[in-house]
Design a protein around this nucleic acid. Structure first.
Lengths: 185, 185
DNA sequence: AACTTCTATATCAGTATGATATATATCTTG
DNA sequence: CAAGATATATATCATACTGATATAGAAGTT
């Protein structure tokens, strides 16, 4: 999915900054998608130039200006058209409508070339990490932060995706716990 | 994970060509990792230059030479060192030891901006695709193709990963079937 | 016979990453 | 309470990867 489209989609939920877009992707969406600042900031500049968003600069003396981006009417229709046009491409999922890059999966696949104790260690660490992720995703209490993020989290779509991710993570944890002996000892 | 390391890891299972490395990544590993030719061929050239692999060129008159790459002793120790050194980085998984890019996940998240019939369609297509993937992964019969691919598929690690992927896909299918009504109608 | 798919390598413009620089505020911990 | 770490915030850039395209014969399909 184009970086432009992702930014517009998040901005569709309300005005916010590049920094917050990044933190939204790292927070609730960290199992779904991520983008670096080196992609987000140029995208936001391009969208501004194309009049799909507007910027309000909040001067904060001696700090860099906080730039709050708002999607325009033109931006909204552009976003909806782009989403509809590209939708079909993403059904056969992953990167660029194609694949996934799971470094951890490759590591396990190559784990026969790793010392047994090391394999144990990376499986333990992974289970710990997965449990952390699960807690983060299933947590339903209040979060201070951005209203944009709250809207996304509590929308029907946000709940659906969080539920899906939670189930997938639970399945993976159970599978690893039950079958890890096949990779060491 | 570095492209070099991926190529060495696959070559560790036996000599093969750049074309086959790509097809292995697209076949049984397509839920785990993928690389384009634009990454594989330069990596193989670099590995040859560094004496981590050797090439035998099978001249096939008027067709481009078929280049069969074999990992060297130096390559094997380099691979094992690299894997051990980088292992820790990949536990908190995804792209570059960080995240995943699921275009389909973003599409569902933004699906409230899509017409209801379209949402139905992309869910139907997705379920079909997932079922296809599941069949492909769980298929345990003979495959002609490359011996390298067979070794990877039937190793304890290959079976572990295929089992994990199968469970995850099953979970996702069930979840989508049970909860899809929340996204339309 | 015509068309499509498979085998096989290679290049490249466009795009994304990961690291780094900069600067202040706020929170944490001994 | 001072020191250190973390959070807020934007920006740049070398390096790396993608997706498309070119080339070309074999093999399989209609």
């Amino acid at each position: 999915m184009q970086t432009d489209t992702i930014c517009l989609g998040i901005l569709r939920g309300g005005p916010t900054t590049g920094y917050v877009i990044k933190s939204i992707l790292e927070g609730p969406l960290n199992q779904i998608y991520n983008l670096s600042f080196g992609s987000i900031y140029p995208a936001l500049s391009k969208l501004t130039k194309d009049k799909l968003v507007t910027v309000r600069q909040h001067a904060q003396d001696k700090k860099p200006d906080k730039k709050v981006y708002t999607i325009t009417k033109k931006g909204i229709s552009h976003f909806e058209e782009a989403l509809l046009a590209e939708a079909g491409n993403y059904v056969r999922s992953g990167n660029y409508g194609d694949q996934i890059k799971s470094e951890y999966g490759m590591l396990l696949l190559f784990s026969k070339y790793l010392p047994g104790e090391h394999v144990k260690l990376i499986l333990d660490e992974r289970l710990l990490f997965a449990q952390q992720q699960l807690k983060l995703i299933t947590y339903d209490g209040p979060i201070a932060k951005d209203s944009n993020l709250n809207a996304l989290r509590s929308s029907a779509q946000g709940k659906f995706m969080r539920g899906l991710m939670a189930e997938v993570i639970k399945t993976a944890i159970n599978y690893i716990e039950k079958n890890r002996k096949k990779l060491h000892d």
